[in-house]
């Protein structure tokens, strides 16, 4: 136990705790993307196909940022989480494309 204790202490000294900076940057990016999305819709009068594509692209970027930084998916040792989420995304894309384009064919 004593060994473990000192090892943990040593580890604590060696390891620098990550600061909040990059999480705040991720937050600011999320806010900016959200504000742009709402502003585009509130402004109206813009070509709706363009708005659709932009909204989706910004949502995907925001989710990518949040999952990378806040859920730590960019960190080492996250291969299985990435596989799990991408498998889910693959199924979702299949269902959503089916629903959007084939339901009322």
């Amino acid at each position: 136990m004593a060994n473990h204790h000192s090892a943990a202490e040593e580890h604590g000294k060696r390891h620098k705790h990550e600061g909040p900076q990059k999480h705040i940057v991720a937050f600011i990016f999320s806010v900016v993307l959200t504000v742009i999305a709402f502003a585009m819709v509130a402004a109206g009068e813009i070509n709706s196909t363009f708005v659709y594509i932009m909204l989706l692209v910004m949502a995907v970027i925001q989710v990518f940022i949040q999952m990378s930084f806040w859920m730590h998916m960019k960190d080492r040792g996250h291969l299985y989480p990435i596989i799990a989420i991408l498998t889910g995304v693959f199924v979702v894309l299949t269902i959503v494309v089916m629903a959007e384009y084939w339901t009322w064919w």
Binding site: Y80, P81, A84, I85, T87, G88, V89, V91, V92, L93, I95, V96, M98, A99, E100, T103, W104
Partner: peptide, 24 residues
């Protein structure tokens, strides 16, 4: 933590199906 990621993969599918129903 790993098990919870697998659960979140399943949650993704759950919400995806609800999104697809809404889109349709």
């Amino acid at each position: 933590v790993l098990g919870f990621w697998l659960f979140l993969g399943g949650e993704t599918v759950l919400f995806g199906t609800l999104f697809s129903a809404f889109l349709a």
